[in-house]
Design a protein around this nucleic acid. Structure first.
Lengths: 230, 230, 230, 230
DNA sequence: AATGAATGAGTTTTCATTCAT
DNA sequence: AATGAATGAAAACTCATTCAT
């Protein structure tokens, strides 16, 4: 695994310390960017000499890989619950948005890095992560297709393009969301659920109600979700 | 303006050469990121020794500043035509989306850098650009307010938040758009116009028609725009 | 070629300086060994900052490669005159020993490095040099075969093994020869010519004279060589 | 002796483990060279953490010192049997060559290191070993003198120089000999005995026979040695 | 005996920048 | 306008060694 230098060198002990160090690295990567962060910066944050970091990691890139890999896997794990959800497309899309916003804001540091710094990884390592990333997108794409089949989403939309656009919209939240800011993740998710649903819904999906009613309905669904989840 | 800035740095001839060099720098900044790009990389791309670059620029950051400043000013200049446009909010929002997508894709390199590398600028220089950036956002915000006043946009929406979300959505296009790809900028703008309008429209804005009809209407408007422009 | 960093970076100027620096590196490599020599050591010897060395070379190994490659090629060039020599095997073997000792002592630094540090080169670069090294050995081997065919060298000897042994003997001179020491290169070559000839000569090669006479004869040949050369 | 040295460093048990570790170090020193070998390399080979090596040794140099010291002492011990041998110079020189080749090939790793890495030892420690090294050389030198006195070796030869040359020749075997290669140590020793004897023999030493007969005689002597030894 | 964390000094290499020519 | 040499600081990484457990 990533956290062992040579298999003889580390076998188990103090994964907490390792976690702490990776966490510190992540925080700095997010603030300054990966390329602009030096090993010295990380060492300073941990209160250790820079050479000592190589106890935990074989290269600076290892930090990045660990952070991105863990974030990607965790994100996929979260979204799988939506993928497995038995419900109509509208409900599932709302759930997707909520799960996504919750994860992105709840793991803001790691997820931001995942979005911005993937290019810094070696092609090899990027490749290992790509599959998970695609599986993630696939979840949304499947929901859009389901909605088209059910007639509740616009039959004319280009599902692949729309997936890209909507995920782009959702991911952009990492650029400005800050904990303790004016909106809670749930509030943001509610708004996003509205914009996302509005973007794909069909006339039949609106079901005679107006679009404002749709937005209100989305809130009820979210509330249900939140309730269900408590 | 580039011209004026440069005249401080150098009197000598060949502004074309200067343009060429800044263009080369921009291309590499976009590909590798500012921090990961070395002066040597730029020199190699131009076929010059790295020391010679300092005839055109006083520091590496100067390249970045020129690129971002020019892109920001040009973007604002483009969007001002929309700001000054006398029309209903729906028409103007469609026009905004089109202008934005056209610019972002047409100046992909510079605009991507503007979005991703602003943090690398000194606070001083970042400050000089921020005003233009905010003016840009203000244009969309004003349109949303106008739409609310006209009753065609959802009265309940948080205009500031929605501006952030929608611009985030539009800017994300720079992450995946490539010239010669499957969609033309105009096609993309049409789709974006649909998602953006759907996100903000009110029941009265829908005007009794369904949401699918709204999306179709947006296309007509775009076509008008395109026609007007030809 | 080796001495240029990027083709744009160095085109010609001051090969003298480059030579001087490589020479300094060679001297230190011989004294301390390649692995134990730091770039700092070289920089100190040249009176330059260590970073500045990378103006001339892309890596520490580049120094080693240049030194070994040049030494190997020069040695081969020298020995080719013996290879092309039209004469009996005895004369040619004496000439070989003289050329070899002259080169090894005359290029003591570079040739010592060539013998001791080849392993530090990347397999790739080692491969590029190996051919020249083998061509060198081949020259002696051919002379031994010629001598066997002429009947002047022992028909029973294993030519390949004897080549290895005799070259090993000759190369060992680099371990203890020092300029200004008690023996001149020519004196050493005379002694070596005796040991080498004695090792391979056949009874017919001795031609009825004793072995001491052979050793004396070898001196005459050398003297002729030396004379011819003056 | 190893045993005694070690007892200063550690009281504890398991001298076998110590031997194993020093052996592993030696093997790596020979392959990569002392300077290029890290403590980590040795630890990896033994399957231990590098810090743990300091239970056996006080410094990296200790490994080298132990290896070289043991090899030098053992070599001297072996050659002493030849030094004490009561026989003619020719017989004793043949015996020397055999003992030397047998030792060098039989302790290839340690003896190679002894030859190549002596310079890495501190002057102090090098000094402690030098005496043994010189005693070793002295054995051959004495034989050459004995041969001159007996008239069987060339009276005109420079004994000191010849000792250096012939030992250089013999030691070079460590550069290419590999166990399981095409020649057994005994076969090599036979060939070396021929070249060494030929290099020093006088006309009277040849005793009217030709030089080829000398080489054959040398084989008989070796055979006798081998027989005597079985 | 061994671990695993850490040190501190060192390694090779990179890089933005300067400057005489 | 450009070169090529050099600077000086910092980068990533290595390594012998120490030490509490």
């Amino acid at each position: 695994m990533t956290q062992s230098r040579r298999s003889q060198t580390r076998r188990g002990p103090d994964p907490e310390r390792y976690h702490e160090i990776v966490g510190a690295a992540a925080e700095i990567f997010r603030q300054k960017g990966y390329s602009a962060t030096s090993i010295q910066d990380i060492a300073d944050a941990v209160g250790i000499l820079k050479g000592s970091l190589y106890h935990y990691v074989r290269s600076k890139e290892d930090f990045l890989y660990t952070i991105i890999k863990d974030a990607t896997e965790a994100a996929l794990r979260e979204i799988q619950t939506v993928a497995r959800m038995e419900a109509g497309a509208v409900h599932r899309l709302v759930a997707f948005v909520h799960a996504h916003v919750r994860f992105a804001t709840g793991h803001l540091t790691a997820y931001s890095i995942r979005l911005r710094e993937m290019r810094r990884l070696s092609p090899d390592r990027r490749g290992k992560i790509r599959a998970d990333g695609e599986a993630y997108n696939k979840v949304m794409q499947d929901i859009l297709v389901q909605g088209q089949e059910q007639g509740v989403f616009d039959a004319g939309m280009d599902v692949e393009l729309m997936t890209t656009i909507l995920l782009g919209q959702l991911n952009a939240v990492t650029r400005w969301y800050r904990e303790g800011g004016p909106y809670t993740p749930e509030q943001l998710a509610d708004v996003f659920a509205g914009t996302v649903l509005s973007a794909v819904v069909s006339d039949r999906g609106l079901g005679g109600e107006g679009i404002e009613e749709l937005r209100r309905r989305v809130l009820t669904i979210s509330a249900g979700k939140a309730a269900a989840r408590t």
